[in-house]
């Protein structure tokens, strides 16, 4: 069973990743704080059900992701049941690799993209609260194109990273 010291080690190890994941879903700082706190409270509820400490990190990040999706849908006015939870025993294994080391690898791949992907993704990554209009002005692109271009560029980046793994 975890004690306070072990709990604080978990916080130190994972809360930065949980925050980054919540913010990557486009949540405001206030909503991201709620998503991260929600994941820790689910952890408090689920302590007895977690048998495999190796999976705690992936579970925390998967649960943060779940809460972030719920909050982002709520921010868009969608109604959603609030009691569906990721399986304690089956967190998303990809969640475990979200960290700064992996991020440096992804940056290397980002730098190999052509324009406008390279500049657009760089601006989007470095300015989490930037509006599409601001990015459009910086890159001299139509504001309506930013969302679709961002989606296409992120998809290309993901393909590059996945090819590395293959």
């Amino acid at each position: 069973m975890l004690d306070q010291a072990a709990w604080e080690e978990l916080v130190a190890r994972f809360d930065g990743r949980m925050w980054a994941v919540a913010r990557a879903f486009g949540l405001s700082p206030a909503d991201a704080a709620d998503a991260v706190q929600g994941a820790w409270l689910r952890m408090v509820e689920s302590l007895d059900g977690i048998r495999d400490p190796e999976r705690i990190g992936a579970w925390l990040i998967t649960t943060t992701r779940h809460e972030a999706v719920r909050l982002s849908r709520r921010a868009r006015g969608e109604v959603m049941a609030d009691h569906e939870l990721p399986d304690v025993a089956g967190p998303d294994p990809a969640a475990a690799i979200v960290d700064a080391d992996f991020g440096r690898h992804v940056w290397q791949r980002l730098h190999t993209l052509g324009e406008p992907c390279r500049s657009l993704l760089r601006l989007y990554v470095l300015n989490p609260d930037a509006k599409y209009a601001q990015i459009a002005i910086r890159l001299n692109l139509p504001v309506g194109s930013i969302g679709p271009t961002r989606a296409r560029c992120l998809s290309r980046l993901r393909t590059l990273v996945q090819d590395d793994d293959a």
Binding site: V11, A12, D15, G16, R17, M18, W19, A20, V21, R23, A24, F25, P29, A32, A33, V36, Q37, R65, A68, A94, A95, I97, V98, D99, A100, D101, F102, G103, R104, V106, W107, L110, L121, Y124, V125, L126, N127, P128, L154, S155, L157, R158, V161
Partner: peptide, 22 residues
């Protein structure tokens, strides 16, 4: 793609987790 974005931001050191959240 959200995981990629999160990892990129962590590596760049932008938008770190606020102290009150920790």
């Amino acid at each position: 793609e959200e995981y990629l974005l999160a990892a990129l931001r962590m590596a760049a050191g932008v938008d770190p987790v606020p102290g009150r959240v920790s």
